[in-house]
Design a binder for these strands. Structure first.
Length: 214
DNA sequence: CAGTAGATGCTCT
DNA sequence: GAGCATCTACTGT
């Protein structure tokens, strides 16, 4: 895979399982207008496998204004509000009509640490390794909001302004290799209601102690 | 440490 | 009106 912002084909031509695993070690970055670049290395993700997956918002073909983004062609953001407080970021994957996504749950902070602290409202109070851990925390640190729902997060030649210059939220490859022995697999968080799907190992995270930088 | 209550707002029934 | 793909602070060891 080339370095730089990922291309839409990667998201649109792979399933959530493949993309989830591959996103570990990539950089999730935000360039919110008028602010400094913020973000870091993706360290934790979950795959949501769509219509058959009881933990998915698209289970059994469920479809509404809220989750409409999931049904679009991969390579855009699916952002929704959880517990009335937290914005959750998924990357939509697979072809149009196949509603799969990858939830971003954790980052190793790299860029714009002070801005991220400011957005979190913790300044110098909390230790840095909690700055972008957890799906609600990282969206807050990166300035990701509901207005980003449905927006492109990668390059797409077929789309107007798909050259990456206008992206506020995007994913980059910096050539960080994540070997299988660096990855922990476990059940997903907060989906106990999903019966047998609650136990499937669809959560992937970097082993503690491995902190790839640059 | 582990366990839990409360905050909070929108969608769907 | 219920129920959420959560987080923090507070309790009790």
């Amino acid at each position: 895979m080339q370095s730089g912002i990922l291309h839409r084909t990667f998201f649109a031509e792979n399933n959530a399982l493949v993309v989830a695993r591959e996103l570990l070690g990539k950089l999730l970055l935000t360039n919110i207008k008028g602010e400094v670049l913020t973000g870091g290395v993706i360290s934790e993700v979950e795959a949501y496998l769509g219509v058959k997956d009881m933990a998915s918002h698209a289970y059994n073909g469920h479809r509404s204004n809220k989750n409409e983004s999931l049904y679009k062609k991969g390579g855009i953001a699916y952002v929704y509000l959880c517990y009335g407080i937290h914005n959750m970021l998924n990357i939509v994957v697979n072809k149009s009509g196949i509603p799969q996504g990858v939830l971003i749950r954790g980052l190793i902070p790299v860029y714009g640490i002070n801005i991220m602290r400011k957005r979190r409202g913790i300044l110098n109070i909390k230790p840095e390794n909690n700055l972008t851990n957890g799906p609600g925390n990282l969206t807050k640190a990166l300035g990701i909001e509901m207005r980003h729902n449905g927006t492109l997060v990668c390059l797409d030649d077929a789309v107007k302004n798909g050259n990456g210059l206008d992206l506020e939220v995007f994913i980059e490859n910096r050539g960080i290799k994540i070997d299988d022995n660096m990855v922990l697999e476990s059940p997903r968080i907060g989906v106990d209601y999903a019966k047998e799907w609650a136990k499937r190992p669809l959560r992937f995270r970097l082993n503690e102690g491995i902190k790839p930088l640059n």
